[in-house]
């Protein structure tokens, strides 16, 4: 039973970060400007290899 409680807690933390904290952070002016700039240029900073870099 305890392991399911741990699993639920972990999922709740993930949900709180991804659906609450990160969207809030995405709207902070400095972050927003970085994200908008990358999106406009079609750059994917999470690209692992050169073939993935440009999304345009």
């Amino acid at each position: 039973m305890f392991r399911y409680l741990k699993f639920t807690l972990a999922c709740a933390i993930i949900a709180a970060i991804w659906l609450g904290a990160l969207p809030w952070l995405a709207d902070r002016p400095a972050m927003r400007s970085h994200i908008d700039s990358m999106q406009q240029q079609g750059i994917d900073p999470s690209a692992m290899y050169y073939t993935e870099v440009y999304e345009r």
Binding site: L22, H34, S46
Partner: peptide, 10 residues
């Protein structure tokens, strides 16, 4: 998620 992706957390 935008913050994750655009800050290179692959």
């Amino acid at each position: 998620q935008e913050v994750i992706k655009y800050y290179n957390l692959e």
